[in-house]
Design a protein around this nucleic acid. Structure first.
Lengths: 145, 145
DNA sequence: GTACATGCAAAAAGTTTGCCGACTC
DNA sequence: GAGTCGGCAAACTTTTTGCATGTAC
């Protein structure tokens, strides 16, 4: 569903001045390869399957760095711990209130809303964060809508 | 700017089966009267101006209850602690990256986006959470855009 | 060789919870 | 009077940080 190109190491260093350590690369790849918006703890668990002895602190440090470098995106949803998304094309999220699953959606004409927001508040709008909350198809089936 | 009607006590109990304690009322009023989306800690501080000896635990407990009761709304923005909003009419937010200020915006035609999201993912969409991030007028002036 | 990274563990920040006496209905 | 609520402090979860050692460039 999601197309990922990880060119071992080159990707990490090419676009930023961060050192290409094994840990950093593995963390980046773990986030890029996952389509389920993992939390830091989940990333940690996955990274350790390939590289035992990576500390949770390192995972947090690198997730923050990679986010600042624009390689991944940190998502903050209500009440839950932060989640991370390797898909950098602008898109939004739909979250299920029952199972917590988060699906991606691309929405048309959000640019208009952004312009509206800027106009009505005088803010310079740099970023948007749109989240819909409801119930996913699987849960609707299981719980009867 | 925001019109609030607090009819001492009646408001709290009328719509929910929560007891009308002084603490609870004061907390609700504090959130309703504030237009700046305070954090729990800020609510605590304000409540204590009127009622010393209210504990932070009580503030958290009541903010959660009032949120579940639909009297106030809990906002979760990136990285920051939760904030609370007494304005229940559907609206969205614009947050300044420099000073942290949060302004309200009402956006037209979000319903369309919501329909789009539902259609494309199969989710039943119950709620939306839209946040724009940028720079507020004051900060633009001070920092030169 | 120098700066930046890591592991580890401790600490911070934010929030929740258990207990018991107090208050609302 | 019964059941809910509040104060307090301890616990918990998530995230950050200090320090000594290790590694990339």
């Amino acid at each position: 569903m999601r197309v990922i190109t990880v060119t071992g190491g080159a990707t990490v260093t090419a676009t930023m001045k961060l050192r290409a350590t094994v840990q950093r690369q593995t963390i980046l790849e773990a986030v890029r390869e996952s389509c389920d918006h993992p939390t830091a703890e989940e990333v940690h668990r996955r990274v350790r399957l390939r590289l035992s002895n990576v500390s949770l602190g390192t995972v947090y440090r690198n997730l923050a760095l990679l986010d600042r470098a624009g390689e991944i995106r940190e998502l903050h949803l209500s009440g839950e711990p932060a989640r991370f998304d390797g898909e950098m094309a602008p898109h939004d999220h739909v979250r299920c209130t029952r199972c917590g699953r988060i699906a991606d959606v691309a929405l048309g004409s959000v640019a208009e809303l952004q312009a509206q927001a800027a106009e009505r508040t005088g803010f310079r709008v740099d970023e948007r964060r749109i989240e819909f909350i409801g119930r996913c198809p699987d849960c609707r089936r299981q719980a009867g809508n």
